[in-house]
Each structure stands twice: as C-alpha cells, then as structure tokens.
Nucleic acid binder design. Structure first.
Lengths: 140, 140
DNA sequence: CTATTTCCTAGACCGTGGTCTAGGTCAACG
DNA sequence: CGTTGACCTAGACCACGGTCTAGGAAATAG
C-alpha cells in the first residue's frame, strides 16, 4: 500500500501522470476531480494518493476516447456522494462497450493495413511493385 | 469484381463511405486523393471505383488515428508514381506498429474499466456500494 | 540575502478535423 | 417550361483538448 498521507506538488503529479501542469490545472477548472484539490497555506495545490488514483482512471478514460465532458459527468456523480452507484455503473458499462467496439474496429483496420504491408513486402522484395495503386495491379 | 466504369456523384460517394460531401471536398482540397478527381463537362466531381477503394483505406487510416497530414504524405508518394514503394511500405509498417500499440493500450484500459464495472456490479447488487470512491473503500 | 525555480490566476492562443453558409450553376422531374 | 434538388467555390465558423503568456508570489538553493 502507498502512504495515505502522500502530499505532492503539481509538478510532481505532472511527472508521475505524464500530464502537463497546465493540463492538470485545466482538468481542475473543468471540474474533472472527484474532490476539491487540497491547497497549502499559501494556496498551492497539494495532491494526495486518491488524486493520483483518480487521475490514472482519467488518463485511461481519455486514452480510450472518452471526452472530458463525460469524465466530468462521472466525476459529478462521485462528488454527489453515495446513492447513485447504479448510474455510475451504467456509464462505465457504456464506456466498456465503446472500448470493445473500438477494439473490434481497430482489429479490423489492422487487418487491412497489415494486408497492404504484406502486399508491398512481396512486391518490393520481388521488384514488381510498379503496379500498386496505379490502376494496373490489384488494389489489395 | 465491381464494374471498372463506376461513375458516382459526390452524394453517392458520401452515402457509400459515410463521409459527408463537405468532408469529401475538404479531403480533396487537402490533397488526400492519389489521383485528380475526375470532373464532368460541367465541373461536377465524378468518382470511380479506385476512388472508393482509396477512400476505404483513408477511413481505416483515420479510424486508427492517422492524421490527415500523414495520409497526404502517403498519397503524395502514390501520386509521385512508381519508384518509392519501399518508402510507402515503411510508412505502412510504422502505422501498423502504432495500431498494434493502440490495441495493447486499449486492451489495458479495458482491463481497468472492466474491473471497475465488476466492482460496482458486486457492490450495487449487494447494496454495499457506499464506500466506493469516497476514501473508505478500496479504490479498485 | 539573492537568485532561481516552482507555483499562482486569468485569459489568450493553437492545431485538428470537420461543418456550414452564401451565392450561384446545373440536372431532372412533371 | 418552371421548380426542386444536387452540385459548385470560397471562406467563415465550430468543438475539442490542450498549450502558453503575463504578471506576480512563495519556496528553495547557494
């Protein structure tokens, strides 16, 4: 378990998450955090382990194409406190579905691209690539 | 084989490809086509089967995150005619790599999201979801 | 103590990938 | 023939997700 009293500056969080400090502040402005970001006596942001955990989720959601607006909607549910877990579950399930569809599509596209690569490899190796995409040879 | 003398209007191509007519014209302006789009006597665009084939590739490339600029670079190589097939192959290989990395990342993210879904399902079903993301329960 | 680095806010700016409008020509139906 | 719909160009507009600047304050290193 990581320490419960983690206290990181925005710069340290930027390092650990790969997000820029600009982006971290922007995420906060946009209401993406599930809890108010703590501040030091002098107004500097102080992040805890929970923030890191949540940010990890955020980056995974972003990496899978979830728009910031949707992340905010989820964050709002969490902020609203207990009682709406079914709703959160619904959002997560929907997104899981989208990821699965993305995986399928990506897999499909990979097939086509890999096919083109294979064709080019064959023809380049054989020195017969001339007809590719010129209207003469097969387009595949 | 599809007819070699296909002659489609921009609207028909939009239907078949799922791209809007606006987008098709924009792609042309941006130099994404591998060949000048034919025109009717009165200046209307006339698309052939080769254009459809190429557009299919374009949409797959877009769907896998290739920026228009990179598609243009590839199109430019094709336009430049025979002799640069090795270079085209290189671009395709690179993109194939990116797709594979995307697949891996997506798969990873799916793991995390699906995990959250499972957790929520268990807790919602059991009526014990209260502690999720409140600092009390396990974050996973 | 001074200099350097990190941080703060508010708000401007940017690339990407479309999407739409205005003003006009052409095709096709009845 | 007229009217309706598809098409043309050039260029404005938009959402998104950052990214950066200015102007200033506090922390930290030497």
């Amino acid at each position: 378990m990581t320490a419960l009293d983690t206290a990181l500056s925005i710069g340290q969080v930027a390092e650990r998450t790969g997000l820029s400090v600009h982006t971290l502040r922007m995420y906060e402005r946009e209401g993406l955090f599930t809890t108010e970001v703590r501040r030091s006596a002098t107004g500097r942001r102080v992040y805890g382990q929970a923030d890191l955990d949540w940010l990890e989720v955020c980056t995974k959601l972003r990496a899978t194409g979830m728009p910031l607006q949707s992340i905010r909607r989820f964050a709002d549910l969490v902020k609203a406190g207990p009682g709406n877990e079914a709703e959160r579950l619904e959002l997560l399930r929907e997104h899981r579905g989208r990821i699965e569809r993305q995986l399928a599509e990506l897999h499909d596209c990979l097939g086509l691209i890999a096919g083109k690569v294979a064709t080019y490899e064959r023809h380049v190796d054989a020195g017969t690539a001339t007809g590719l995409w010129t209207g003469i040879g097969p387009p595949a």
